[in-house]
């Protein structure tokens, strides 16, 4: 029995070896090297208070490290610009700028997306436990909050992509609401 057990371990090691060669920090390095750019997106939100999901489409602009713009075109135009800690919001002729640090509900979301895009592993690990599945050509990063404050609002964030591109972001909120954003680079 003993040799068999060792064989099993050896096999296990052989199988898992290639996977562990490519880990979170490698993905982060790849993401950090992303030069930014433009993309289109479709976002579906399922809210308990609504019978049908809300569907939004629009453009995204990312300029590392701190500038992220979300331009909703349908159903109603809306612009969201995250520049450092300032979140600028424009809709229906109204403008507002808030410091995201004043809104604990927002910080969790924003930090997850900002940390992933910039490949800031340390920042992500401050608030989340990271699990990486897949390979460079098709990867899925799961973020589970370990910060009490964030866990009040977020159950799980799943980000998937290929190479240095993020293609979907899925938020599962603590109240059961869910949002899935599919991203399509335009170049």
């Amino acid at each position: 029995m003993k040799p068999l057990k060792y064989l099993g371990l050896l096999l296990l090691a052989l199988i898992s070896f290639p996977a562990s060669a490519w880990d979170v920090s490698d993905l982060m390095k790849t993401l950090a090297a992303n030069p930014g750019g433009k993309a289109t997106f479709i976002e579906k939100r399922q809210l308990a208070v609504l019978d049908k999901p809300l569907v939004m489409t629009g453009d995204l602009v990312y300029a590392p490290p701190a500038y992220l713009e979300k331009r909703v075109l349908t159903p109603k135009p809306e612009i969201l610009i995250l520049d450092g800690d300032r979140l600028r919001y424009e809709a229906a002729g109204k403008k507002a700028t808030i410091n995201i640090n004043t809104q604990p509900e927002l910080v969790g979301f924003i930090d997850s997306i900002r940390g992933t895009l910039t490949g800031n592993q340390r920042k992500l690990e401050d608030n989340y436990v990271l699990t990486l599945n897949g390979a460079p050509k098709r990867w899925t990063l799961i973020l589970l909050p370990n910060d009490q404050q964030i866990a009040k609002y977020v159950l799980k964030i799943t980000i998937s992509g290929h190479d240095d591109k993020v293609t979907t972001i899925e938020y599962l909120q603590a109240d059961g609401d869910k949002s899935v954003m599919t991203i399509q680079p335009t170049h």
Binding site: E43, R45, L54, M56, L80
Partner: peptide, 18 residues
């Protein structure tokens, strides 16, 4: 208000929406 639910404000107004 439904439109707002899709915006960042939505996170805050969701709870009081009903």
């Amino acid at each position: 208000s439904i439109d707002l639910l899709g915006s960042p404000l939505g996170l805050m107004i969701k709870k009081i929406f009903p």
